[in-house]
Simulated scan of single mutants.
Amino acid sequence: MNMRERVWLVGAGRMGLSYAKVLTTLGTPFIVIGRGDASARAFKQETGVECRPGGVAAALKAADAPSSAIVAIDIPELEAVAEQLMHANCRHILLEKPGGTDEATLARISAMALETGTDIRVAYNRRFYESVRQARAGLQEDGGAVSMTFSFTESADAIVKIGYPQEVLDNWLLANSTHVIDTAFHLAGEPREWTPRVYGSLSWHPSAARFQGGGMTRDGVMFSYSADWDAPGGWAVEIASRTRRFILKPMERLAVQQRGSFAMEFPESADATDGHKPGLLRMTRAFLTGEDAADLPDIHDHLSRTRAIYGPMAGKPPAA
């Protein structure tokens, strides 16, 4: 089997390790493309899988581009690698979330994908959590959702210590909080009429510290949200039908409250992750086979959401 017939896994870091485990479980032939010699050796030691150092540019000099690639690298590098692969005729790309640093970056990637005819999907794996799938199925059984509230409070002290580039911190809602925001509107439908508000500032995120808003989705679901990045808290989604409330807090575990009861039920999970990162196995299978691919957003939909939802929610003006 030549290099084009194998999936290229670009990235030998934490997410690259997770994808390598999934691809091995799925029995999908793949080649790992790393950047430095040290990370390539560490990847081989951790997984037993060879990792080719030198980055995508060196790999493309040595061989034709693959038909499909999974790009799991740091956020500021996503655009350049996606462009290299598209220029080299790779037409099926799974790009790690959030796909790019900001709206302008996503717009350039989207435009090139249209120009080259490339199908780029953005890896929002929480859509594929068993807890989220169970909540979605329950809502459908009940005739749909009627109301939702969610929170995307971030752990500011921990974030600052990690040492992210300022361009990523400036766009932290897109970079990280969209994990929960995307899941919420995946369940309730996208906003139709709503009002976002931001307040305060932080040293590492001067544009806002607190976020609050609400409105109605296109599916007729009343929603509200709040987040305070200068206080304790976390992520949560609560979405209700007329008969049940589905609570994702933490998002990996579903709790259900029946009408007329204060008790919480915890449905058994049918998700056999076998040690994989939750949702990643099912999401990767969707990318490779097309099964449940409708749940995997493409770059154009993601750009539209960034312009219509994530930017306003973050208090950011539209990109020029």
Rank of each mutant, 00 (worst) to 15 (best):
E5K: 02
R6W: 09
W8K: 01
G13N: 07
G16P: 05
Y19V: 08
L23I: 06
T25Q: 13
T28L: 04
I33T: 04
G34I: 03
G36H: 13
R41I: 00
T47P: 03
G48N: 08
G48R: 06
G54H: 01
V56N: 01
A59R: 05
P66R: 00
S68W: 07
S68K: 12
I70S: 02
V71I: 05
V71R: 00
E77L: 12
A80W: 04
L85C: 04
M86W: 02
H87P: 13
N89G: 13
H92R: 14
K97L: 02
P98F: 03
G99Y: 03
E103N: 01
T116S: 06
T118P: 03
T118I: 07
I120A: 02
R121L: 01
A123S: 13
R126W: 06
R126C: 03
Y129V: 09
R136D: 11
E141T: 13
G143F: 10
G143V: 05
G144V: 13
S147Y: 10
T153G: 03
K161C: 09
Y164M: 07
P165M: 00
V168E: 00
V168Y: 00
N171S: 12
W172N: 14
H179A: 15
H179M: 09
I181G: 00
D182P: 03
A184Q: 00
W204N: 07
S207A: 07
A208G: 08
Q212V: 12
M216F: 10
T217E: 05
G220P: 01
G233V: 14
A236P: 05
E238K: 05
R244N: 10
E252R: 15
G260R: 03
S261Y: 11
M264E: 11
D271K: 08
H276M: 12
K277P: 08
L280P: 07
L281F: 15
F287L: 08
T289F: 07
E291R: 04
L296C: 02
L296M: 03
L296S: 04
H302R: 02
S304K: 12
S304I: 08
A314E: 09
G315Y: 04
P318L: 04
A320L: 12
